[in-house]
Design a protein around this nucleic acid. Structure first.
Lengths: 142, 142
DNA sequence: ATTCTTGCAAAACGTTTGCAATCCG
DNA sequence: CGGATTGCAAACGTTTTGCAAGAAT
């Protein structure tokens, strides 16, 4: 998603986050990517000019104020994605390709779970895994 | 789920896993628990008689042959659960209580994702988070 | 005898923390 | 000035690994 520096400053201010240089850079990276990035990837894209601990702290803050979403592809680490519309992902087990899913219909599941268990459901994590089109056709996993 | 030692030996043999003493103990623990356990919990239940690395290797093997499922409550670690029927969980953010969910209807989502993206979907992870009945009523998070 | 399994120690990896320096309003 | 932000180093918790000893077939 294209976002100008100004857009990002406004967004951060709106959320009550002081738009420091580091935060602007980190946010820019996250907005520019259409895939969820892990901390190492963010650092690399910033040419390691910003310390890992700062990145961790910043991403955590961005999640806390709701401008990033924390995503878990079960890799033993988290990924972060700019929140436009909430959606889910299918990840290719072979090449790592990620496709977005619209209208998963998970709200229905949440409702029925609420009825079934009495829980108030406030959050969910749903990720799908499989084989992308290309990898279905390739031979090395027959 | 109740499982006798004999049941477990049969199960392991059926899956082509040699039923060593350590494996029987670990499997017993996993069967006896109705909640997904993490590695540390398994070790503790085994009174630390079995080394962590062995537990990791064993659980990994059990997942590989399909008798355990690897579950991720986004805690920075994995949990393992004996596979009876496949189901999902709601976890209470407050007290950690876990409730099982039946018939989530996720198959429909998988189908629609398959159509939408061309992926063959082979696996999914779905966990829900919220507040259990008891914690909805308690006062410390008003 | 050979293969598989285990314990141990060490390392790897992602992440968090305390602290001091620095930035910025 | 004073509070927030950053870099650094060190620690942390989970998981993986190499290797040698031990068990099982």
């Amino acid at each position: 998603m294209r976002m100008t520096r100004k857009d990002i400053i406004s967004l951060l201010q709106l959320k009550g986050v002081k738009p420091s240089a580091a935060r602007l850079q980190i946010m820019q990276i996250c907005c520019d990517s259409d895939l969820p990035l892990d901390v190492q990837e963010v650092a690399t894209l910033l040419k390691n000019e910003i310390h890992l601990s700062t990145i961790y702290r910043t991403l955590e803050k961005f999640v806390a104020v709701g401008i990033l979403e924390c995503i878990d592809f079960q890799e033993g680490k988290f990924r972060y994605e700019f929140v436009r519309d909430h959606h889910h992902h299918v990840v290719c087990n072979d090449c790592g390709k990620v496709a977005d899913i619209k209208d998963s219909g998970i709200e229905k599941i949440e409702q029925s779970v609420s009825l079934q268990t009495g829980f108030i459901v406030t959050k969910h994590s749903l990720e799908l895994f499989g084989l992308c089109n290309k990898c279905q056709r390739s031979t090395h996993h027959v």
